[in-house]
Design a binder for these strands. Structure first.
Lengths: 263, 263
DNA sequence: TGATAATGTCCGATATTTCAGACAATATGA
DNA sequence: TCATATTGTCTGAAATATCGGACATTATCA
């Protein structure tokens, strides 16, 4: 229920107009999520359009959030974006969350040892999300901005993050358009399901040339105490890998993820 | 106690009239600020007490914020703290804010060059706040957690952050109890005002043994285009400094702050 | 240049939300 | 053991914040 609601509020630009009038707190959350999705400063009017709220309401809310420094002016023409208070809330989260705290160091050492981009990823709604990343030493870098949502079928991690669902649930969970890769190619649902199953069996997932032309992505799950997947560690390398290189990287990645998993 | 805490919640704003009923959005903000001040997970009931809100209202709001992942469960006994969404909002701020982005690198190089703790600080309400810090190489480290509010008279930066106020305004601005140093010693208001004036004249401020027994703190202002103080850069060293050492550190600090100031 | 579309602010009515208090279920302590 | 305090959940009703729309300004563009 809440999942569906949250998912639709995140993905749906023009969600069905359910009640005539929405709760204030929901509007506040919608404003913040809209800004995060847009990933750049917006004007109050734009935000109102994007969340389907009356302009007057949106101005009211934005102004109050500005006062609290949760938002701040950003840009010369009345745009707003996240403010200092938001920053401090985020720091507080990172400091307090044991997993997150440990992830930083692990990513750093992975990036240093492999020269690749190392990332910590998780599920959010029905999308994949990079929560933390460290770039390797390589000249060419493959980056996904932290906080940007990406369709699950586009990523190696996506094959690991669905282990709590069965085949039918996965079909229902992922919107059909997400099976169209950024290259324009259509990924077959059956193939994806097979890959999800294989990933669960093997305990890792490797994909090639999915998002970018020349990139291999290796992902392994970080597990909670109950065995469910809390997130993934993943390495992105701008190259084909021979079997031996692949093994080497997995031999670094798997212990790293085990170290982060609840014992 | 709860009233005191609630009233002090952001000093200056519209503290005056408290109607028996508060806006939902204000309650949301109060909840988030209470958690940030407390700097640790809290239960819904505790939060209610700390912000002076009815318990039922507080539960309602906390539950909605949990759904949005702005808060998340933290601790075995129903405590909550900032969640993943808060983290992403904070990252978004840090990525978008030009000053903040540049500060990271500058602090790093200051910490590396001096071996001291380097911090980026600003004014928030009538308190001093560390927004970013990098620790030096030294064995003994002097740290203030990011996001913790500290009375202005306790810090070197505090002498620089008040340049927009005149003497009388400063007297009104800073609560009397803030002139009691953590050592228990009472700082005279006149002396503080003299130091503020000196800091403005010199363009830097150095304090000794204010917060901790063996620490010298050097701070210089980062200026906005209009000449007002946007924040400070500061170095904390666990030692007395002879004039020459002091000069050396200032010669690193001052250009660093100029580099960050709007040209 | 005039016509059209946005922007930011303000207002009154009413649908929604806050609040107080009751409640059962636990925790705490004498 | 009983008495007392605390927790999390619900409820109805009063109070207010949301909403639609109007209003001047300011952009945009034919």
């Amino acid at each position: 229920m809440s999942m569906v609601e949250a998912a639709s509020s995140r993905s749906g630009t023009k969600a069905a107009r359910e009640p005539d009038r929405q709760r204030g707190i929901d509007r506040v959350i919608a404003v913040l999520e809209a800004l995060q999705r847009h990933h750049a400063p917006m004007r109050a009017g734009e935000i109102a359009r994007s969340i389907g709220a009356p302009r007057s309401t949106c101005y009211e809310i934005v102004n109050r959030l500005l006062e609290a420094e949760i938002l701040e002016p950003a840009g010369a023409e009345g745009q707003v974006y996240f403010g200092r208070a938001s920053y401090l809330f985020g720091r507080a989260y990172a400091e307090n969350n044991a997993l997150h705290r440990r992830v930083g160091g692990v990513l750093e050492s992975l990036a240093a040892q492999t020269g690749a981009m190392a990332q910590f990823c998780a599920l959010r709604g029905n999308k994949y999300l990079v929560l933390e990343s460290r770039s390797g030493s390589g000249l060419f870098r493959i980056t996904v901005d932290v906080g940007v949502e990406v369709p699950l079928p586009w990523t190696a991690s996506g094959r690991l993050l669905l282990s709590h669902l069965d085949a039918q649930e996965i079909r229902d969970f992922i919107p059909p358009e997400d099976f169209v890769l950024p290259t324009g190619e259509q990924l077959s649902v059956d193939q994806f399901l097979a890959e999800v199953e294989a990933a669960a069996r093997e305990g890792y997932s490797v994909t090639r040339n999915l998002v970018d032309i020349f990139a291999t992505c290796l992902a392994v799950p970080i597990l909670r105490q109950d065995g469910s997947v809390a997130g993934t560690l993943c390495l992105v390398v701008p190259a084909e890998l021979v079997a031996e290189q692949r093994r080497e990287l997995l031999d670094l990645l798997i212990p790293a993820a085990r170290q982060l998993s609840a014992h």
